[in-house]
């Protein structure tokens, strides 16, 4: 399918990124590029700095006491520090958390919240967005008859898809998923994974995962973080079978670590 593609466009470029909490280093030495319309995986053991990395991409450091970062992170070639209006930056970056967060609003309002925040008022437009996003997140059929019931009362797996629908309602250019399947059953996980594969054509996806096989199934390229250090980035398949620059990467993906 892929023609002799021109050099793929870089969506996010990260140079010498280091992240600190209260002056204490949490992650350092990150140099990587995330390409447009790819699923970019990030793997690494607990505490290696994956979530912190995502928080820098949408500048949530600004909302987090003590969190600072150095180096440059550019989205579409523009330094994330250059945004004067961070709400504008965040509104185009969807985020899905490890534990699903259905806001204590109706299912409808959960998905309509972001469109409303950016000024969409017309009921028919909102109806249309809500239905489209819920369909895309593979949740529509389960909730279409109870859109007015509380989002926070859905089951965990449903709430996680609600979170994805909410992220999609932002019409994001960048979708950040942080271990989204941690509280979700395997069937739902597979459903969501299928959704992600489709979404790739519309947006760029960063997928942090604890399941190396999930990265292998989904990610085009993958970065490996290890206890606060960026180890390497490469084609996902290469990390499993190809040449790796650091032997620890292979040990990690093969599950013989320690």
């Amino acid at each position: 399918m892929v023609d002799a593609a021109p050099q793929p466009k870089v969506k996010v470029s990260v140079k010498d990124l280091a992240i600190q909490y209260g002056g204490k280093a949490a992650l350092s030495g990150v140099n990587l590029e995330i390409r447009e319309h790819e699923i970019f995986g990030i793997i690494g053991p607990a505490g290696s700095g994956k979530t912190s990395f995502l928080r820098v991409l949408n500048r949530m450091d600004e909302m987090t006491t003590g969190m600072t970062f150095t180096g440059t992170v550019a989205i579409d070639g523009r330094d994330v520090r250059a945004w004067r209006n961070l709400y504008a930056l965040r509104s185009r970056i969807g985020v899905v958390f490890p534990l699903p967060v259905g806001l204590p609003l109706s299912i409808y309002d959960n998905v309509a919240l972001s469109p409303r925040l950016r000024g969409i008022r017309s009921a028919s437009d909102l109806d249309e967005i809500v239905e489209r996003c819920l369909r895309r997140a593979a949740l529509w059929d389960e909730v279409k008859d109870r859109l007015q019931s509380l989002g926070s009362l859905l089951s965990g797996g449903q709430q996680q898809r609600l979170t994805i629908a909410r992220a999609l309602s932002q019409e994001p250019e960048l979708l950040l998923l942080d271990e989204f399947s941690i509280a979700v059953d395997p069937v739902t996980t597979m459903k969501i994974e299928d959704v992600l594969k489709e979404l790739r054509s519309e947006m760029t996806i960063v997928l942090v995962t604890n399941l190396v096989q999930q990265a292998r199934r989904l990610a085009d390229r993958t970065a490996f973080f290890l206890s606060g250090a960026f180890v390497e980035v490469g084609k996902t398949e290469d990390l499993f079978t190809g040449p790796v620059t650091d032997p620890r990467t292979r040990e990690y993906v093969e599950g013989r670590f320690g």
Binding site: M60, S91, R92, I93, F97, L103, P104, Q170
Partner: peptide, 10 residues
């Protein structure tokens, strides 16, 4: 978590 979810949406 509710606040974070909202902030992350912009």
């Amino acid at each position: 978590a509710f606040r974070e979810a909202c902030w992350n949406m912009g």
